[in-house]
Amino acid sequence: MGNPMKIRAASKDGVTEVKVLMSHEMETGLRKDASGNAIPAWFIAELSAKLNDKPVMTAQWGPSISKNPFLSFKIKGGKAGDKVAVTWTDNKGDSRTDEAVVT
């Protein structure tokens, strides 16, 4: 389930800029804990975005992305009042979707 994302979406001159903050550990699997045991990999593996239920982006992610990732992208189209939804799924199968209204 994870903690909520923070999404901001603003439209200007027919282009919608979306900024997303995600709350995720993004553990690489290469680190060890204090007693020397490897900490298992745990990261967002897939990410998708929709504008009013229409998919506008999908991305494959890996363990090289930082903890609590920040993502910014632009959509051609979109206007104030439209809905932007972002979904991530991590390598443990956990998933979360959050939405924001375009301003």
């Binding site: 903690n3 909520p4 923070k6 900024k19 903050l21 709350s23 903890k67 609590n68 920040f70 910014s72």
Partner: peptide, 10 residues
């Protein structure tokens, strides 16, 4: 731009 502190504020 995109300070993850916002997540903790929430």
């Amino acid at each position: 731009d995109g300070n993850p502190a916002e997540l903790f504020e929430a």
